[in-house]
Design a binder for these strands. Structure first.
Length: 841
RNA sequence: GGGGGCGUGGCGGAAUUGGUAGACGCGCUCGAUUCAAAAUCGAGUGGCAUAGCCGUGAGGGUUCGAGUCCCUCCGCCCCUACCA
């Protein structure tokens, strides 16, 4: 019987469904394993082969863990609120719900074909009202904790979309999805005080089993820095300017103060003589797009203008000029800095530009030539003279605190989280506003606050969010009967993904968001796999919510995701008529190589040359491979195997269809060992080499379930299959063990072979085979023989051969004795079971 | 500018962590099978001036021995960007 992958896959997928094979176990006596994929946004374009790479990896782990006796929670859902569906709905004149439903069906169908062992009874979608009811409930928890507030903040306003975008959705002053321009505008928005949790978000990273790079990115994002607030009196005013600095020790080197152009004191302190210049500068800066202000490098020319006002340095009473400059950011620290040009590169550049004085206060550099930021003894610094940076900081902070001129403080780069969007397709806030401006929460038993039906999803003519169109919905009352209007902003897409891992625990309950007992059993997530693009935001937001829930006593772990793993992206060759990849892309079918192996390509139709470049697989680059095609041509099993075989899971790798053909051949070979093979026998067979290959494969695959190094595990399985193919006789017992370690990777073929071997127990819960150290032992060791560090041959010796015997045998080699002839042996290196090296001259 | 990662055959990648570089797979070559092709099977496959020499981006160092450790340089990728 031939290996007909389509028949085999259809058969076993139907069987699994009929048997409910991947239902989450309910007994609580066994150890648990919660393995989770970062759930996708179901886009309209469907999946390419890059998307399921992480899902295949987690499926291998899930299937293996089940066989190892764990209760496995393995689930999939949809991050289904979001702007693209809303925009698509607008284009098609349909409801976003319809678009979302359609996209989910496409995604689910594609995933189903891969034989991924999800418990589909736990499927969830964040846009489902039975789900977002609880998202609103969690919002209330945060609100009750005093973590939500409204603020008039500068936001990324996209006029074309009529909505506010989050910082991460804006790049180079444009919306990343559509390229529409984005501008800054002050608007009243809901904010979360994530900064309150800054220290804990930072500290608790320590105990997580996450890639070091991701932890580092989170640390930098939080950006904790210790320093001091220092207050400067403004000469002739009652106002004081507060600055933040990490180098209070350089205070005696301060020769001017700089405010952000937006700083609130600018208007008050600017002198009449400077008023026009200041106004002009502020207008110029205000006209610059966010892009212009943020893409400037640190070494960009410095601009600024003096206010004409003077500040008083608290430590020495010196009067120093107050400037404004755009290199001081309004949003960080206090929006004001004191400048010590001698020991800060930006201040130095600024002082040089405007010929401001530079005063050395830390010795060790040449401040006439450049800013010196290194350590050294302080000079010109009164009570700090002679101290190095650390001690000088302590001394000056003590002085400032004593004289009520400042204090030591900690500053975060992390900002509070802008949590509202002017969109339709998101969670409504469970809040109403009374006529006198009071914000009242919607009681828990009245959740969910459902999205109203609208006839259009655009903002209103007067610029209010789409929900404002639902007049009847907006007009409501408070629980105590006062008239009120509903909040018309919706939550950002991050909301749903902040807690979905908890909902999977009790996905269908209308009684609670999750069952506390079940939560105690399943949490934390043991393995969380997804792309590195979520390194900061999703993971930080989810950790924040989780910590709030922890503080409310609603979850029992401090952190949601114990182990995190980032799978690498899949790349593919792309063809573009511009060498930098910015021109027109062509499909592989539209181009041809000018001569085989030439590496030069042209467009078939026009003969125009095209440039090849390996790029991330994406629809816009015309270089995607559809998993459905792979399943049809080579089978889901071959594709799964190839994705795991391409290279280390964390690395990017280039997709090649021929690679799938290779893993398919491997499956064919395995098939032939079991199906209609006359060499397959019942009794035990003594064949140490094949047995060693088998046990080596068992060991490697078993370990790979922890290390996720599947590429080498698969290669060990290939070695076994090659060895078994060459053997004169094959034991049924070997194949039974082999099929079980193959099962997580290629589950459909494995099921078929398992059945063919006459096994009746379900393979998905069959016992995982164990390797036998005895079987891994070899009878003889091949020693490498070196003379003066160069390879001169090998010798086979018994495992327990003594040093002298091995060295004797090495010297007896003709290739060795020839070289030793007439020389004196200086040293003999012997590495047991590895090599001998004879040093002679 | 800062931070992180990486450089190994024609290609993807292995290498017990300082001990036979190139496992396994792709591709390629030859052979078997076939009227022929595909598929399949078998053999081979780092380079070269082939008793040997050279080879892990380049150069230096440590060592009996370096892909692996240390310095200098070159190149590529990712993240970040005036954060005081």
């Amino acid at each position: 019987m031939r290996y007909d992958h389509q028949a085999v896959e259809a058969k076993w997928q139907a069987r699994w469904e009929a048997d409910d094979a991947f239902a989450t176990p309910t007994d609580r006596t066994r150890p648990k394993y919660y393995v989770l994929d970062m759930f996708p946004y179901p886009s309209g374009s469907g999946l390419h082969v890059g998307h399921p790479k992480g899902y295949v990896a987690t499926d291998v782990v899930a299937r293996a863990k089940r066989m190892m006796g764990f209760n496995v929670l393995r689930v999939m859902g949809w991050d289904s609120f979001g702007l693209p569906a809303e925009r698509q709905a607008d284009r098609e004149g349909k409801h976003p719900r319809e678009i979302t439903k359609r996209n989910i069906a496409t995604f689910k169908g594609q995933l189903a074909r891969l034989g991924l062992s999800y418990d589909w009874s736990r499927e969830l979608a964040t846009s489902d009202e039975r789900y977002y009811r609880w998202t609103q409930w969690i919002f209330l928890k945060l609100y009750e904790q005093g973590l939500a507030y409204q603020a008039d903040v500068p936001v990324n306003w996209c006029p074309a979309l009529g909505t506010v975008l989050s910082n991460e959705e804006v790049k180079d002053g444009k919306y990343v999805e559509t390229g529409d321009p984005v501008e800054r505008r002050n608007m009243k928005q809901w904010m979360f005080k994530i900064t309150v949790y800054g220290d804990r978000l930072l500290e608790d990273l320590e105990d997580l089993d996450w890639p070091e790079g991701i932890k580092q990115m989170q640390r930098e994002w939080i950006g904790r820095s210790e320093g001091a607030h220092i207050r400067f009196d403004v000469d002739g005013h009652d106002e004081r300017i507060e600055v933040f600095t990490t180098r209070p020790d350089t205070l005696f080197g301060c020769t001017y103060v700089v405010l952000a152009p937006e700083h609130e004191l600018v208007d008050q302190i600017t002198t009449d003589a400077q008023r026009a210049a200041v106004a002009e500068y502020r207008t110029a800066v205000g006209a610059m797009s966010e892009r212009d202000r943020t893409t400037q490098a640190a070494d960009a020319p410095k601009t600024g203008v003096a206010t004409g006002a003077w500040a008083v340095n608290p430590v020495n009473g010196e009067k120093i000029p107050i400037w404004i400059a755009d290199y001081v950011l309004a949003g960080y620290g206090t929006g004001a800095v004191f400048a010590c040009p001698a020991h800060d590169e930006r201040d130095y550049a600024f002082a040089k530009t405007f010929e401001l004085p530079i005063r050395e206060v830390v010795s060790g550099g040449d401040v006439a030539a450049a800013a010196y930021t290194g350590d050294g003894a302080h000079v010109n610094s009164s009570f700090m003279d002679g101290l190095h940076i650390d001690d000088a900081k302590k001394a000056v902070i003590a002085w400032l605190e004593e004289h009520d001129a400042g204090a030591g403080t900690v500053q975060y780069r992390l900002r509070d989280w802008l949590f509202s969007r002017q969109r339709y397709w998101g969670e409504p806030f469970p809040l109403v506003h009374t006529e006198d401006g009071e914000v009242v929460t919607v009681p828990e038993d009245q959740l969910p606050v459902r999205l109203p039906e609208l006839d259009a999803y655009k903002p209103t003519a007067d610029g209010r969010p789409p929900l404002a169109r639902a007049e009847d919905w907006v007009q409501t009352t408070t629980p105590d009967g006062r008239p009120a209007v509903r909040e018309t902003n919706t939550m950002p897409q991050w909301a749903g993904s902040c807690w979905y891992y908890l909902r999977f625990i009790s996905p269908t309950s209308d009684e609670f968001a999750w069952d506390p007992d079940e939560e105690r059993y399943w949490m934390p997530v043991d393995l969380y796999v997804g792309g590195a693009e979520h390194a900061v935001l999703h993971l930080l937001y989810a950790r924040f919510w989780h910590k709030v829930l922890y503080d409310c006593g609603l979850v029992n772990t401090k952190e949601p995701f114990q182990r995190l793993f980032n799978q690498g992206m899949i790349h593919a060759m792309s063809f573009n008529d511009s060498p930098d990849g910015r021109g027109k892309f062509y499909y592989p079918s539209q181009v041809e190589e000018t001569a085989q192996g030439s590496g030069e390509w042209r467009v078939k139709e026009t003969g125009e040359p095209v440039f090849t470049k390996v790029m991330k697989m994406s629809k816009s680059r015309y270089n995607v491979t559809n998993p459905d095609d792979m399943c049809r041509d080579h089978g889901a099993d071959a594709m799964r195997l190839y994705e795991m075989f391409m290279g280390p899971l964390e690395d990017g790798a280039m997709w090649e269809d021929s690679g799938v053909a290779g893993t398919r051949r491997f499956l064919e070979k395995a098939w032939r060992l079991v199906v209609d093979n006359p060499k397959l026998v019942d009794g035990p067979i003594a064949n140490p080499d094949v047995e060693r290959a088998l046990h080596s494969a068992i060991r490697k695959v078993t370990k790979s379930v922890e290390t996720l190094r599947f590429n080498t595990a698969i290669s060990e399985m290939m070695i076994f299959v090659n060895a078994a193919t060459k053997a004169k006789a094959i034991s049924r017992e070997w194949m039974s063990a082999f099929v079980r370690i193959l099962a997580p990777f290629a589950p459909h073929v494995a099921e078929e072979l398992w059945e063919t071997l006459g096994q009746h127990e379900a393979l998905v819960s069959a016992a995982w085979p164990e390797w036998d150290e005895e079987k891994l032992k070899v009878a003889a060791i091949t020693y490498a023989v070196q003379v003066n560090g160069k390879m001169r041959g090998t010798i086979d010796m018994p495992v327990d051969a003594a040093k002298d015997a091995v060295i004797g045998a090495a010297k007896a080699l003709e290739s060795v004795s020839r070289l030793l002839d007439g020389k004196t042996i200086r040293r003999e290196i012997f590495v047991p079971k590895r090599l001998v090296n004879i040093v002679a001259n």
